[in-house]
Simulated scan of single mutants.
Amino acid sequence: MDAVLKIDTALTRRYSRHDLLMANAIGVIPLLQELIALEKNTKAEARLESVIKHQQILNRLLVASTQISSVAAELDCEGERAERLATYLDQYDTQRIRRLTLLSIVIGAATTVATTLIQSSDASKAVGIGGGVIGAGFGGLAAFSTNRTIHLTHQRNLLTDVWQQNQQSKVYPPFVWYVLNEKVFSNSNQYSVIHNIRQRWENFVLNDSSPEEQALYFGQGGNYKADDFHARANMLNQLQSSVRSINQDLHSLALALAAR
């Protein structure tokens, strides 16, 4: 694109580099050039052709927006599924803790009553010690979460390409992946969007995760615990926000086009 802009400065005078990169992403640079050339022609045929070119560009913008919505919807669906499965495991663990705590209380109360009724000192001590041990055992079990898991297979793992920082993706539309890989579309303009996303995952979600956990999140799937589902949902939601923000860049190009 840079070679084209050096030759055709009319584009750079009319549009910002940011908008031109977005135009390049959706493939409308040639249409913008033709539109500028037609504006210099005052004939009726040229004005009609200008309207046609303008509509073609708007159609490309609409297609790009639809692709963004499609990817964001898939990310949202995957994130919701992970959250639902995490909630199911959390509720199972909560019920388990409640049952164990109740058993501990019941055994403690029963032990107290039994030691009061038993006349023999030795028998009373034995019942008290046994009941205390059993009650403490149930209470101790309640302090630990269950290792219950749910097996989840990723037919289309939307996290993999971001984690691996791939230059090309078989999951994301080329337009969306181009924007996520282009530094100018990030807040800092120093690193790409997917680079920044991976950094956030490493610093705030994964917390020095093991190779096995990374294979679970970014591979073909496996047995997930509740915390694993929460982590997956968090990463999907962060990625969804970044994909949806591309609409702002499309909106900027649409405004520049409208101001011609």
Rank of each mutant, 00 (worst) to 15 (best):
57 I>V: 09
58 L>R: 11
59 N>W: 13
59 N>C: 10
60 R>T: 08
61 L>K: 04
67 Q>S: 07
68 I>G: 01
68 I>N: 06
69 S>I: 12
71 V>P: 00
73 A>L: 12
75 L>F: 01
75 L>P: 01
75 L>R: 00
76 D>R: 15
77 C>K: 13
78 E>Q: 12
78 E>A: 13
79 G>L: 03
81 R>A: 13
84 R>E: 12
89 L>D: 01
90 D>T: 10
93 D>M: 02
95 Q>S: 11
96 R>Y: 01
97 I>M: 07
97 I>T: 14
101 T>K: 08
103 L>Q: 10
109 A>Y: 13
110 A>S: 11
114 A>M: 08
118 I>M: 06
119 Q>M: 12
121 S>A: 14
124 S>Y: 03
128 G>D: 07
131 G>I: 06
133 V>R: 02
136 A>S: 09
136 A>I: 09
136 A>E: 06
138 F>A: 05
141 L>T: 06
147 N>D: 14
148 R>Y: 13
148 R>M: 11
150 I>N: 04
155 Q>E: 11
156 R>W: 04
156 R>P: 05
157 N>I: 03
157 N>F: 00
165 Q>N: 08
168 Q>F: 09
170 K>P: 01
170 K>I: 10
174 P>C: 02
177 W>P: 01
180 L>F: 00
180 L>G: 00
184 V>F: 03
186 S>E: 00
189 N>V: 15
189 N>E: 12
190 Q>W: 01
190 Q>K: 15
190 Q>M: 11
191 Y>P: 10
192 S>G: 06
195 H>I: 13
197 I>N: 00
